[in-house]
Amino acid sequence: MSKLLVSPSPHIHSENSTRSLMFDVVVALLPAVLCSFLFYGWREILVMAVSVGSCLLLEWAITRYMLRKPSTIGDMSAVVTGILLGLNLPYTTPWWVVFIGAAVAIGVAKMTFGGLGQNVFNPALVGRVFLLVSFPTYMTTWSAPQGLFGVDAVSGATPLSAVQEGLMRGSTIQELTSGYDYADMLFASIGGSAGEVCALALLAGFVYLLIRKVIKPWITLSIFGTVALVSLIFWGIDPSRFTDPLFNLLTGGLILGACFMATDYVTSPMSLWGGVIFGVGIGFLTMMIRYFGSYPEGVSFAILIMNSFVPLLDRAFKQKKFGR
C-alpha cells in the first residue's frame, strides 16, 4: 500500500549541497592546476597527487578510526584543501614534505577543531605555513618554470624574494624589477609556487565562482584595493625602496590567497562589512610584511592572522534586520 510522506515545510530544496559548492571550487581551481602542470611538468603532478591523495586519506582515516563517525570525504572539502595546499608548494617539494603538510592541514588545522565548519584557520594555509617554518629550504628554493615538455631546469628566485635580497644588497627597485614583464606575470612564466604562476587562470576561476554565486566579491576586491592603495602610497613616497602596485598585485600568492583562501566560507566573515574589514586587514598586513617583514611574502600570514578575528567580525557586523 502506498503511504503519505509527512514532513515540516519547506518541502522543496535548492540544488545547493556542500558537495556541489566544493565541486564548484574544484572546477574553479582547475585552470590554475592545469597551468601549473603545463609549466612545471610531471613533478608538479606528483606534488598535487600526493597532496590531494593524502588529504583524502587522512580525512577518511581520522573520521573512520579516531572519531568513529561516518566518513566525510564525500563532501569534497578535503579535495579542495589538497588542491590549495598543492598550489601553495613549489613543484620541487619532496613527496614526504607534502604529506607532512597535508597531515598538519587535515589532522591539526581541521579535525582537531571538530572537522568541516569548525576550524578557525584555513587548513591549507596552516599546512603551508607549518612547512614554511619547518622546512624553509624546500619551501624557498624556487625554480623558474620548466614546462611539461621542456628540458631546461632553471633555478632562480621568485620576484618577491629576489627583490628583498636585492634590496638588502643595496640595489634599487628599478634595477631589480626591470627584468620582469607584467604581461609575463599575467600569463605565467616567472618563478614561484605552483599557484603563483598563472594569474589569469586564477582570475578565470574567481570569475567562475562569482558567476556561480559560490562566493561574493567583497573580500577579494577589498584585499586587491588595499594592496594597491598601500603600495601606491609607499611607492609614491620612495620608488627606489618600495615596489609598485602592479608588481605587488601580480606577484607572490596574492591572487591565489585573495580569490581562494581568504574567501573560504569557514574562515571568513559572513557579513558585507565584516568581509570588507577582513579584506582590508589582509591587504594591509600583507603589504607590511612584504615591505618591512623578514619574509618576502606575507599573504599566508596575513590571512591566518585575520582568520582569528572572524568571530569578532561576525559578532560586530550583522545584517540589517527587517523593520529594526
Binding site: 503511504k3 503519505l4 510522506l5 509527512v6 514532513s7 515540516p8
Partner: peptide, 22 residues
C-alpha cells in the same frame, strides 16, 4: 501499523508538533 512515513528531521518534538504521528 503505520499509515504515513515521516521524512522530516529526526526529532520527537518536531514530529509531535507537526502532526499526530505516523
Amino acid at each position: 501499523p503505520t499509515v504515513n512515513v515521516y521524512c522530516g528531521s529526526l526529532s520527537c518534538r518536531v514530529k509531535a508538533t507537526l502532526y499526530s504521528g505516523d
